[in-house]
Write a protein that binds this DNA or RNA. Sequence first.
DNA 1: TGAGAAATACTCAACTTGAGAAGAACTTAA
DNA 2: TTAAGTTCTTCTCAAGTTGAGTATTTCTCA
Lengths: 267, 267
Amino acid sequence: MADERDFLAGYDPRDYDPVAVTVDVVALTIRDGALHVLLVRRAHPPFAGMWALPGGFVRGVRDAEDLPDAAVRELAEETGLEAGDGPLERMHLEQLGTYGRPGRDPRMRVISVAYLAFAPELPEPKAGGDADDAAWTPVTALGLGASGEQRPGTTRKLAFDHARVLADGLERARAKLEYTPLATAFCPPEFTIPELRAVYEAVWGEELHAGNFHRKVLSVPGFVEGTGTTSDRIGRRGGPRPKLYRAGDARLLHPALLRPGREEEIR
Amino acid sequence: MADERDFLAGYDPRDYDPVAVTVDVVALTIRDGALHVLLVRRAHPPFAGMWALPGGFVRGVRDAEDLPDAAVRELAEETGLEAGDGPLERMHLEQLGTYGRPGRDPRMRVISVAYLAFAPELPEPKAGGDADDAAWTPVTALGLGASGEQRPGTTRKLAFDHARVLADGLERARAKLEYTPLATAFCPPEFTIPELRAVYEAVWGEELHAGNFHRKVLSVPGFVEGTGTTSDRIGRRGGPRPKLYRAGDARLLHPALLRPGREEEIR
DNA sequence: TGAGAAATACTCAACTTGAGAAGAACTTAA
DNA sequence: TTAAGTTCTTCTCAAGTTGAGTATTTCTCA
């Protein structure tokens, strides 16, 4: 044990290569039936004026924080919401992946741990920190290709490798909706089956058969549970008032709710 | 642009909290019909004498390397294989997750990026670097609980949070076998359907219905393709000689090959 | 008040799965 | 040499799931 103490004492972390660690957050929500991602506009170089995922340096030693805590902190700072608020509490947060290609940040070697968040509708963000603007942005406006590049002519150019990170986050979100009940994380505490279908349609970008979707959601054990109440008719275009449901206790959908027509993507 | 250059010049990475970045590898293979993981025994504190996943510091600035390259390098160093060798070439490697809880390493703040590797049978490893032993270890010998802890009485205690990392890697491997053809990454270039079934049984820890498995593998497009040849009868207990197959060109299995009897895990 | 829209419930054919059985090809032990 | 046991491979059948379409009812809007 004295051995171990000697060893620790002779250990200077700064002998190692200086590597910085950041967290970036792909925060997704549904607004007006379309999938949106939270972006901030960079006020300073590098990539000044370009848009980026909210994020920042992890507090490493002083006030050392765990990675998910850093992600929530950065998200709270950018949205102006308190960590402990209702919407941020109900939010789903999971690690997406870590991006560390040398040269991805021109200043220094930066390893970025990306998190993926699903949130019910959140208020407009307020710019803060290094950002001079912040906004929910429809993902369709970013011209993202499947391999993580932006099509020429897109107005909102993403900084660093954030187009790649966002593309990975979107694909993860699409896949998670297949086999988990996380679509409910985009909804308020009580929601209707058509609202849930709208989440699937926004994330997957395709229309679903209403009758089959309804049958499927009710037949998967633990996906949703009825509240016995009915939604009021605000903002609807016709038809009977749909019933209200809450998220059930399932953590996995069994059988899964598969995306239609993916035969082309398989090879 | 002058603006940007000034900014970079005034930027000292060492102003930031010193955080070290490592890679750790969960390398899985099948030996004697059982799932094994590559472990090394630590020669020095902390956790001297305990077993750990192979890994080490990422080369950050001098000879800066990308994270997957660091994972392959560490794996090659620990196994004594060259990073261009046949088995290491055919190996599947994917990022598993990043572990950065403060205090997980008593020396300093360490963020560890874990990788998951699937390999066909590899030679016995040779200890090197900080390790005084290295061995393929049956995962059943580690007494892993589902929540990433080791049951009391397990002889090979894992250092750091490596029990958690390994548990996550095993769950990822089990899930990947359901919807990707990656079971073939555990097999030699040519294999039989019963050999492929043995991979599934070793990773999932349950016996599968031979007839249904056979039908399923052949019916999923692009999973395997026949070679027209037949295996020789070495080391078999009876029965006809099975046909040989190669991995097909599918990247996803559609429909997926689901694990039986997971109804309990859903809630 | 009538047209249109949407929620929900149904039907039916096609497909997939799980369980079992059968036949053929091979090994091993008597 | 033979009998018994093992395993690969192919079938069969019942039960469950899916995709597409239809029907009924309740609502909004003009």
